[in-house]
Computed example of a mutant assay.
Amino acid sequence: MRASTTVTIGVGATAAVLVAALVQGAGDDPVSTALSLTVPSQYKSLIEDAGHTCSEVTPNLLAALLTQESGFKPKAQSQVGAEGIAQFMPSTWQAHGIDGNGDGKRDVWDPADAIPSAAAYLCGIAKDVKDVPGDKQSNMLAAYNAGSGAVRKYGGIPPYKETQNYVKSIQALAQQPSGGKTATTTQAETAISVAKDMIGTPYSWGGGNASGPSTGTCCSPKGRSGTDISGFDCSGLTLYAYAKAGISLPRTAAEQYAASEPVKPGDVHPGDLVFYGSSLTSIHHVGISIGGGWMIDAPRPGTQVRYDPIDVMTDLIAVARPTSHGNKEI
C-alpha cells in the first residue's frame, strides 16, 4: 500500500501526552478464523465481517494489521500522506476504496468503509503475489506494506527492515491465543526488580535472553558488534526481566509491542513497556517504566543498563503491558 509511512498518532502531540502521563502517573494456518484479539467494541463486527473476505485474511489478522497501522485511530495521518484507520495512500484509496456501509460515499476516514476496503485490498494483493515463493500470508502482508512489485522483485519479503518487522509484528499479534492476561502488579514489580539488579551491565547488540546476559551478534546500524560483549540490548533486557516474572516475550522490540496490550496514557503503571519509533511498524527501542517519568533501559552500544528519563528520546510511540498466554504467574 505504501512504503515507510510515519503515523503521526505516536509522535508529536500524542508522544507529549504519553510523557506527561508517565511523569504524572508514576503461515499455513497461522491465525484463528475467529476474532480473539481485543479490539474497540465499535469496530468488532466490522472486523469480524471483513475478516472473512478471502481465505488469506482472518479477523485476527485484520485486527492485528489495524493495530499496527493506526492503533484503531480513524483520523490517523502519516507524514507521507497515508490516511485513516487502515492508512491508505490517497492514490491507493482512489483505486481500491469501497463503499462498505452503502451510504453512497467512499470515505477513507470512515472505518465502515476503510476496514472492509483494507480486507478487500489484502485479498487483491494476495492474488497479485500468489505465485511468489514462500508463505502466502507473509507475502501478502509484505506487499501491503511495500507493494506487490517489491515482493515479486525479491521473490518474497523484501530486504527492508521496516517491512520485515511489519510482517513479524502483525503475525505475532495475530497468533496470540485468546484468554491472555496482562501482567499482574506482582509480575510488574518482579520485572522492575530484576531490571534494577542489571544496572551497570554492558550493552551488547543482540545480547540477552531469558537466562540473563549473553554475548550478542553483529552488527548494529552503525557497525557495532556484540559478539565479544556479554550483556543486554534493549529488548534482551525486557525479555529477561519478564521471563523472571513468568511472562515470555518475543525477542525484538517491535515483536514485544505486538505481544503486549496497548495502554492509554492515563492507565500507565510501573512495569509497562515504553516503546520508541517513528511509527508502530518501525519501533527501535524499548524500556521498562518505573514511574515518575523514568525507565530502566539498555540504551545503545557503548553504554550500560541504566535509569533514563522517559523523554530521553523524542519519538515515544506507545506504552503497552506484557500479556501472559498460559505462562506461569508468580
Rank of each mutant, 00 (worst) to 15 (best):
E69D: 04
A13K: 13
A21T: 02
L62R: 08
T33H: 13
S32Q: 10
V57G: 01
T92A: 14
V108L: 03
V132G: 08
D107I: 02
Q68D: 11
A63W: 03
Q94I: 00
G102Q: 04
D28C: 05
S32A: 14
L37F: 10
L61V: 11
L122N: 01
A114Y: 02
D107M: 04
D99M: 07
G102Y: 04
P111V: 07
G100L: 02
D28F: 12
E69R: 03
C123W: 09
S78H: 09
E56Y: 09
T38I: 11
S41A: 15
D128Q: 15
A119L: 05
K105A: 12
S70F: 05
P90C: 06
S45H: 10
E56C: 01
S55E: 14
G81S: 10
K105I: 11
T58S: 15
C123R: 05
T33D: 15
V129K: 07
A95K: 14
D28V: 14
V19S: 01
V19N: 05
L37R: 09
L62M: 09
Q24F: 10
G27R: 12
K73C: 00
V23L: 06
A120C: 00
G25L: 09
G100T: 02
Q77P: 00
Q79P: 00
C54K: 11
G102I: 07
G51P: 03
D49P: 00
D49R: 14
K127N: 14
A50Q: 05
S70C: 07
L65D: 08
S70H: 02
S32L: 10
T67W: 15
T53Y: 08
V23T: 13
I85L: 06
P74C: 05
D128V: 07
D49W: 00
G102E: 04
Q42K: 13
P59C: 06
E48K: 11
E48W: 01
P116L: 04
A63M: 07
E48F: 00
G97Y: 07
D28M: 11
D110F: 00
H52P: 01
K44I: 00
G84R: 01
K44Q: 14
A63Y: 04
V19R: 13
L62N: 07
Q24N: 11
L122W: 12
D49M: 00
Q79W: 10
I98L: 13
I85Q: 05
N101S: 06
A34Q: 15
I125L: 15
I85H: 06
G102M: 07
V23I: 10
P30V: 13
W109D: 01
G100K: 02
D113R: 05
V132L: 10
